[in-house]
Design a protein around this nucleic acid. Sequence first.
DNA 1: TGACTTTTGTTCGTATATCGCACATATTCG
DNA 2: CGAATATGTGCGATATACGAACAAAAGTCA
Lengths: 252, 252
Amino acid sequence: MRETDFVSGFARGLKVIEAFGETRQRLSIAEASKLTELDRATVRRSLLTLAELGYADYDGKFFTLTPKILRLGHAYLAATPLPALLQPHLDHLSEGAGQSASASVLDGTEIVYIARASQRRVMSINLTPGSRLPAYCASMGRVLLAALPENEARAVLARSELKQNTPKTRTDPEDLVAEFRRVRAEGYAIIDQELEIGLCSIAVPVENDRGETVAAINIGAPAALVPAAEMKERYLPLLKETQATLRPLLRR
Amino acid sequence: MRETDFVSGFARGLKVIEAFGETRQRLSIAEASKLTELDRATVRRSLLTLAELGYADYDGKFFTLTPKILRLGHAYLAATPLPALLQPHLDHLSEGAGQSASASVLDGTEIVYIARASQRRVMSINLTPGSRLPAYCASMGRVLLAALPENEARAVLARSELKQNTPKTRTDPEDLVAEFRRVRAEGYAIIDQELEIGLCSIAVPVENDRGETVAAINIGAPAALVPAAEMKERYLPLLKETQATLRPLLRR
DNA sequence: TGACTTTTGTTCGTATATCGCACATATTCG
DNA sequence: CGAATATGTGCGATATACGAACAAAAGTCA
């Protein structure tokens, strides 16, 4: 790609949109400038452009995103059949398990939630479609990484910041690669409080009719209610059942 | 706002992102150019920028959005507490009713889904967070419009394309304004196949502790299973219960 | 309170990047 | 093959970004 095939004004604007999120609902020009490391004048122009287009509100001091911004992510969710296809199965899964069920795909070193059926049970983590978690320490991430050729999985780990989130978090690349082999062989991954104390989850791949992994689904539960040792016997059958139901529905 | 406070390259890029969606998963440069009415060279630069940033894939012929694009809409969903707060209540509602439950807010002449709990039952409409429907003929839209001062509601109607979706669709502004009054007085709105034949729904406002309407929630059902006349007795109590549960949770 | 410091928002001139056109090239299809 | 359609590129006109300077507001402290 040539230098002139890049619209930096567009790239800068997208960066500004991403500066929201992370619990930051309202941003002043100066705050957005710091977060994006862009010049205040530039950020101001981007924000005013967003406001002019109706993607943001401006009260003279703070900018707030409007629901119109959802059109952008929705362009993906609507255009990709997968999320809509998975949703009812997640609802079923969630109801059957009495716990939250989610679906995600891999994007670089992170998993991205594309659909979710939550339960009333309050979890400290607030996940919605579009939420991201590091792949190496999430059950769906393990499943998705295990589906990659091993050198690619290693490359992702090399790019990942392997952080020790809890005392249980596994951060050794060789250890993780070995776990990927086990996941591939046994068809599921369990995370026991590696992401957050008190949170366990179990995931299986969603495969199309050719056996290619196109996403992952999981069930998450509080460790206090469901010990990691019980995750497999309680939820794996449900997940496998959903997996089998989905396979023939996924053509390509 | 001065002329130079607008970054047209950014605005053009956002338009290109929105060209996806509408069931269009893959777009060539020429297709995107037609949809956006932008010059091919411009669209090409925007698409290559998206690809360079990882928001799109390019196989040399077609561009496809990647899950990374969800970061943009997620910036709103994560920053706004409302969707996450409502989700578990929608799940509860959906489970209790055995039908899909949704929450939305008003954006101009349209309602935007911010959370949803769907049921296995297959509906022709595929709704996800970010989906949009015309407000005048949706149950949540009626509720949200009824919450506006009457002159504002009239202004929205004036800007709306009041389309006759089905023989049952009400399109007369005066008739609609009268219905808004009834909705305000009785606290709920029912749509009987005005949006689509075979689809009924009932909605109530979600109010904060000051009584201001901040969103709407609804339950939708196939007319074949639940006649419009039964919607009220079957689902209104559930909706009211949820409404009452939510009110004290919504501070401001 | 009032003077001083720091932070934030806005404006301006200019160097630079982008736009859209026109043309060149590539691909598709009858 | 030739027409039609799609994509890539060079260039002049135009729009944008940058950094600095200024203005205004907010915070700080005696």
